[in-house]
């Protein structure tokens, strides 16, 4: 993409379960990693460009809990906040936006009822509507997974991204199931294929272990990267990553 002053975004992700940040490999073996509002404020102070909260335990009963978390994070945060996990209806999206999310991320529900993307985009604007895609490689192609990576639905990830863009998704949050939590680097083939196929921004997710990995994702077309474990463990700060990127002539917000 040429002729833009837009910078590449670094987005720490908080996987939240019952009001606490958790971490694990491939969504298994979750461990406690702190309070969401404290974590979000810490990453903001380090120079994070946005925060994503994914409710990995999202259930109807947990809904009130989730809203309370969003309200607390919002109060402290002066950068954009995206919230996902268990959003089934336009009303779920509305409640999260009211609680303080700037965007909502829809995953499984959009696979079964793609029109939810149009409904969210029409009512709240395309800038509120993020489609999350979990994908794994399947030969030369990539297949879409749902329900936290537990189920394949025979859908091609690149085709699904294009379809979602046409329906109203304003951004694609693309997670490689093969790489998630492994720290082996992003799936560059997946990221590149989706970024080239759509006009909306693409956030690469799954596998980051170093600033070098993050640069690789930007080099192959990602507009933003999502990372959880590297920041939670304190191995790297957002500031460290940005210093590396600036040294390597990648445009980021200083």
């Amino acid at each position: 993409m040429s002729r833009t002053g837009l910078t590449h975004r670094i987005i720490p992700c908080l996987d939240v379960s019952h009001g606490r940040v958790v971490k694990g490999v491939k969504f298994q073996g979750l461990r406690d990693a702190g309070d969401p509002a404290e974590r979000a404020a810490l990453y903001q102070a380090q120079g994070a460009d946005e925060i994503v909260i994914l409710d990995v335990s999202a259930t109807p009963e947990g809904r009130g809990n989730q809203h309370e978390t969003v309200r607390r994070v919002r109060a402290a945060l002066s950068i954009p906040l995206t919230v996902g996990g268990g959003i089934r209806t336009e009303e779920d999206a509305f409640e999260l936006l009211e609680a303080g999310a700037d965007k909502v991320s829809v995953n499984t529900a959009a696979v079964f009822s793609p029109e939810i993307l149009s409904h969210i985009a029409t009512r709240f604007g395309r800038q509120c509507c993020v489609l999350a895609i979990d994908a794994r490689s399947q030969g030369q192609r990539f297949e879409v997974l749902i329900k936290g990576g537990r189920e394949a639905v025979g859908k091609d990830a690149v085709a699904w991204a294009k379809e979602a863009e046409a329906l109203g998704a304003g951004e694609i949050l693309l997670t490689s199931w093969d790489r998630d939590g492994t720290r082996e680097g992003f799936d560059l083939a997946l990221t590149g294929a989706v970024a080239a196929a759509v006009h909306v921004p693409v956030i690469a997710s799954g596998g980051a272990d170093s600033a070098k990995h993050i640069k690789e994702a930007f080099d192959c077309g990602a507009d933003a990267v999502l990372a959880a474990s590297i920041f939670h463990d304190g191995d790297l700060t957002v500031g460290d990553v940005k210093s590396y990127l600036l040294e390597h002539q990648v445009r980021v917000r200083p």
């Binding site: 837009l6 910078t7 460009d49 395309r126 909306v200 917000r253």
Partner: peptide, 26 residues
Amino acid sequence: TDVRAPQFGWNEVTALEDAQVLDSGF
């Protein structure tokens, strides 16, 4: 059509020096 749309993210703003409220920054 040759730039990403929506424009999502932090862009560098350049304000005029005698601006009262606006400023240059991201």
